[in-house]
Design a protein around this nucleic acid. Structure first.
Length: 563
DNA sequence: CCTGAAGACTCAGAAATATAAGT
DNA sequence: TACTTATATTTCTGAGTCTTCAG
């Protein structure tokens, strides 16, 4: 436990000692073999090195749907031309006349060749990767050797945003040492830049947690090299996050009473704030910062909802005051929900929407800064996102309480856990695309279940037969046989039950992503306590990485922990 | 002091890779 | 046992939230 209980640093100081090797730079571009050609207008054309490299980025993505989109093609072609020599610019004027087919095939083949490599060769590659990990993947922070999260620079390539991103296809440039700022402690061994290069800057800022940073050229924002979630620094922050959420538990009732009162406020701004907060609390919506138009995909959160994103139904499917939400949230994941809301909320929404265009802001007097200022005033450390953490964790705790049957076997209890986890994922709208092999693997499972059912039936008959025989003969051998057959039947029935559970779980899970809530929203202490209480080995819920990340919770939690 | 931009950090699903299960 | 396929884990980096800074 001691590791989590070392003394705290003062005011914003994150470490006293930080030593590392700097980022690992991706290997330089390898030119194409002579017999792999690019064709323009049907004729082979030898490209300059820089032009060729960018061409390979496009060629590699050729069978991806992305490359068929006009925005992608235009952005790519625009940026590609900038890399060309003036001679090349003279010739290559039309993307449609470019043939990347041979280059594409070269990379597909190369990939397959790599997969087909003999075992020893693969082993060798792995050892090389491990060596790099060993050398660059760790740092020393305040005397502890800590794992780094992302120690490699991002390779150059074509930008792929999520959803309808206006910058898709743009060229993401190669990161050079000259772009990189190193952060470490003054008295540490300062990382050496690669031969013949120098760092952009070396600084000694112990009020931040990053080891290195650079500015990315697509959005002009900073990227960082930071520690792995298993590190003490990240673990403590995570713990702190859940402690804030637990404090919200104590005041949430007051806050709810407050926003209900504010629904009737004379100030429109307060009313909007109160309705937005109701959504954030009840539906676990994100805050919704405003975003710069044209720079990113068009997505929204609570405060940035527009009139077009909701529809009001005084009556719907036997419910009153129904709000129908339909918008794209983070990562362009669709949020669709029909919710019966309290009457004053409904009335307020009607008011907010009056005389507005579909593209106008629903909460036109509200932004996240104003909302968060209010929340800060209600509780120290409270911001909009704390509601998501709080509601997620409290839901897990409640669902576990409601769903766990102490009589169940481990598989049954695990199903209950997954269902509780799933309830949270649904609340937070964590979705995934249905796995490509889903239908097939479901069918395979169903066939197995049917086969097992048959076996169970057969076994039942066998038992009956054995029992009849015993009734006739009354001999010990026949009696033993009855026992044997019964045992077999029981085993088969258990197998069948397990398969049925598996099928249910799989079906319920096909479009839901459990990982994000498990990793970021659910206080791990709830899970640890549940495992202890019901005798479930923690490895059945958390894999190795997750156990490392949640080491702080596994260390300190007893079975009576309450969120 | 206010405001918008920059900075720092958390959270997000897809894709790549490793491992287990099936044949 | 060797190969193939399904599943689990890990990596990747984009997309949010919230804080801090500069003019």
């Amino acid at each position: 436990c001691s590791r989590w209980e070392e003394e705290k640093n003062e005011d914003g100081v994150k470490w006293m000692q930080l030593e590392h090797r700097g980022p690992y730079f991706v290997p330089p571009y390898e030119p194409l073999p002579k017999d792999v050609h690019f064709y323009y207008d049907g004729k082979p054309l030898k490209l300059s090195l820089a032009t060729e490299e960018v061409a390979t980025f496009y060629a590699k993505m050729l069978d991806h749907e992305y490359t068929t989109k006009e925005i992608f093609q235009n952005n790519f072609f625009h940026d590609w031309r900038k890399e060309m020599t003036s001679e090349e610019q003279e010739i290559i004027k039309d993307l449609d006349k470019c043939d990347f087919g041979e280059i594409h095939k070269y990379f597909v083949d190369k990939n397959e060749a790599r997969k087909a490599l003999p075992k020893e060769e693969k082993q060798k590659l792995k050892e090389e990767a491990d060596k790099i990990q060993e050398e660059y993947g760790y740092c020393i922070l305040d005397g502890h050797r800590e794992k780094i999260g992302n120690f490699k620079t991002e390779p150059p390539g074509l930008f792929r945003g999520r959803g309808e991103h206006p910058k898709m296809g743009m060229l993401k440039k190669r990161i050079m040492p000259e772009d990189v700022i190193i952060n470490c402690s003054k008295d540490s061994k300062i990382p050496k830049p690669p031969e013949g290069h120098k760092w952009k800057e070396v600084r000694f800022d112990n009020t931040v947690t990053w080891l290195a940073s650079w500015t990315e050229n697509i959005q002009n924002t900073l990227k960082y090299i930071m520690l792995n979630p298993s590190s003490k620094l990240k673990g403590e922050k995570d713990w702190q996050k859940y402690e804030v959420a637990r404090r919200l538990k104590d005041v949430v009732h007051t806050i709810r009473a407050q926003y209900r009162k504010d629904w009737k406020s004379k100030e429109i701004k307060k009313r909007q704030r109160a309705v937005a907060l109701y959504f954030i609390d009840k539906l676990a919506l994100r805050a919704g910062n405003e975003k710069e138009e044209g720079e990113t995909a068009d997505t929204v959160g609570c405060c940035s909802l527009r009139v077009e994103h909701i529809q009001l139904h005084p009556q719907l499917d036997g419910q009153e005051h129904v709000v129908e939400f339909d918008f794209l949230g983070k990562d362009s994941i669709r949020y669709y929900n029909k919710v019966s809301v309290e009457k004053p909320v409904f009335k307020n929404l009607q008011l907010f929407m009056k005389n507005k265009d579909p593209t106008d802001d629903l909460f036109d007097h509200l932004n996240t800064t104003f909302l968060n200022k209010h929340l800060q005033h209600l509780m120290d450390g409270l911001t909009a996102k704390v509601f998501r953490t709080y509601n997620a964790s409290i839901t897990l705790q409640e669902q576990l309480k409601a769903l766990t049957n102490p009589e169940d076997n481990i598989a049954g209890k695990l199903l209950s856990y997954n269902r509780a986890n799933r309830a949270v994922a649904i609340l937070c709208n964590h979705q995934r695309s249905i796995p490509k092999t889903f239908a097939k693997s479901m069918q395979v499972l169903q066939e197995k279940i049917d086969a097992k059912k048959k076996q169970v039936e057969e076994a039942q008959e066998e038992v009956k037969k054995a029992e009849d025989e015993f009734k006739d003969t009354k001999d010990a051998k026949a009696e033993a046989n009855v026992e044997k057959k019964k045992k077999l039947l029981k085993r088969l029935e258990e197998q069948l039950a397990k398969m049925n559970i598996q099928a249910t779980d799989k079906e319920e899970n096909k479009q839901i992503a459990l990982g994000t809530s498990k990793l970021n929203y659910l206080d791990p202490r709830i899970t640890v306590a549940w495992c202890k209480k019901f005798g479930i080995p923690i490895e059945r819920i958390y894999n190795k990485t997750q156990r490392e990340k949640f080491a702080w919770a596994i260390d300190m939690t007893g079975e009576d922990f309450e969120f």
